[in-house]
Design a protein around this nucleic acid. Structure first.
Lengths: 333, 333
DNA sequence: TTGAAAGCGCTAACAT
DNA sequence: ATGTTAGCGCTTTCAA
């Protein structure tokens, strides 16, 4: 070694108490001079812990996913964990097994699955053996694996009930791709709210989350039910498409048709008219995913109890579907 | 070992030719049965290559950054590389040295710096020794380190010249946080375009990229120059804020004031009115960053030639600042 | 307070 | 075609 010793260096680096001040100083000087960085790789090998979490995401370009990832980075950063990120291609036939295997090979200490389980459902399928604790964010609660979900169903009911409270009776739904569980849950919430109110189900059209698809789907719905008076949109972007198309056609929002979105992106307050929407605690979702994972990190994933957390949404009322006029039976949702 | 051998297994896993079919089959069977995953950690240690790239990002919740990250994931995925992601907290005094050291410790083979170099400029400061090739995405081209940048300055001129071609003469700029290099470059492009046209510099207000800040900044500018007839906004979100506030005040877009944004987010086509904007090749930026890094991965970063790529932007014309009427001297930019 | 030995899980270089 | 030896860079255990 440079100074005199060999792996007394290790003790210095790990701040052990049993090193004489003199040698410690010498070694620290040498380290600083050479710019030595202990290899986390070798450390991982010895300790069998990589200080790293795996994240499987899809649709980073979407508001919701990016926002969740932001929460994940914040929390993992705070706990000194690195993040190994894999984004699934959008082709719906992606086999996730190799992705998980990649993460296992890198010995991540936990996996956050923040992609919709399209097609392949690892849910029932067996996880590869040796896989660390894993938490699903985009699924429905399940007895088979741990989940943290946002109450999309309840949020959809919040939205639909709000439209009902405005005396809208022909309420359509602009759904996201129904392969996404959240799209299905939002759809179901809307459907059930109408049913509970004793109304017939309104028209449904499916978009691809994009505002452009919102315009097209709006067209479709109007053709189907020209006298529509309310729409619950599966996300804010698609709602934006509706707003735009309505303006083109001279349809007044909310007078002719009231609109409620979903997501709660900041921009919704600056839409014209500003958008009533269901806000999701996406950031919190990401942070929770990390802390849940780390809380259970030491246990054996096989025998680990399955946990299920559900986060609630919140209705933010703006111009596109204002608060109901103060009549006898007015309620917000 | 389970069957008979020891690290003939290694040969099997690495698909070497020199294994007898019989033993190979036996070993493969055993592997499948136990669900064995070779440790990428140990592999990294031996090979001194981690098959991993480091990404330093900031502002994942912003459209531009998320979009770039998407490009990065696509390309790295295609090349079989993992991504170790670090997001910088938003406090402007973050010390990035520990972040880089973290990545070095994990022996990433390259670093993509996709955060604005606020305050601390590693640029001039010495990189920690032993750091792998690094490419900066948010800086200006520099002789000191490799960069891939989007021509924000040129894009801003594209935008401003377009407003000039519409005979606007009192053109303001709604800037992003001037700590971000792209915000400064866009500001400078606007300023120089006005100067080259022989006009006085219009009013400037700075927002924080959010649409809410756009509303406020618009107010400020109007108070300063009530008869404004054009605005170049530093991003599409802030432009949205302007659109909204203009609608509130009954200011007609583009008749009274023409607006041009920057970014080219998909939603801009569904703003009301639809937004003329400067499109950035963000996805390509991300993909290029990865391929550049991997192309130079074997060379010594110290002696590596500094490369600088500049990607051009494109003006997309929509309603908020339409094409100039076909007069003699009309030009688009 | 410090050093020596052994091993984490793998692969490269020989040897057989 | 397969086994041996050595070592990647670190930490742990035990000895000095």
């Amino acid at each position: 070694m440079c100074g005199v010793s060999t792996q007394t260096v290790s003790r210095v680096i790990n701040r052990r108490p049993d090193v004489s001040p003199s040698t410690r100083a010498a070694i620290e000087a040498a380290i600083a001079e050479v710019g030595f960085q202990p290899s986390a790789v070798a450390r991982s090998l010895v300790h069998r812990r990589s200080q790293t979490l795996g994240v499987i995401a899809a649709g980073l370009r979407y508001f919701g996913v990016a926002q969740t990832l932001n929460g994940i980075t914040v929390e993992s950063e705070a706990r000194g964990y690195g993040l190994l990120l894999k984004e699934l291609a959008n082709h719906d036939t992606v086999d996730i097994v190799p992705v998980i295997e990649f993460l296992i090979a890198h010995r991540v200490e936990g996996i956050i699955f923040a992609a919709p389980e399209l097609g392949t459902n690892i849910a029932t399928a067996s996880l590869p053996p040796g896989s660390p604790p894993i938490v699903y964010l985009k699924s429905r609660p399940s007895p088979a694996f741990s989940t943290i979900v946002i109450d999309n169903y309840g949020g959809a009911q919040l939205a639909t009930n709000h439209l009902l409270s405005l005396d809208r009776r022909r309420i359509g739904h602009l759904a996201g791709p129904l392969a996404w569980p959240e799209a299905r849950d939002r759809h179901d919430g809307w459907r059930d709210s109408l049913r509970d109110a004793g109304l017939a189900t309104g028209p449904v059209a499916a978009g691809d989350w994009s505002s452009a698809s919102g315009e097209i789907a709006f067209d479709t719905m109007l053709r189907e039910v020209p006298n529509l008076d309310g729409i619950f949109a599966g996300n804010d972007q698609m709602a934006l498409g509706i707003l735009h198309q309505a303006h083109e056609r001279g349809i007044r929002i909310p007078d002719d048709i009231a609109i409620v979105g979903f997501d709660g992106m900041d921009e919704a307050a600056q839409f014209t008219p500003s958008l009533t929407t269901v806000v999701q605690p996406l950031n919190r979702l990401g942070r929770l995913a990390v802390s849940e994972l780390l809380a259970t990190a030491d246990e054996d994933p096989a025998t680990m109890p399955v946990r299920a957390l559900t986060l609630e949404t919140e209705l933010v009322i703006r111009e596109s579907a204002p608060a109901p006029a103060p009549r006898p039976a007015a309620r917000t949702g």
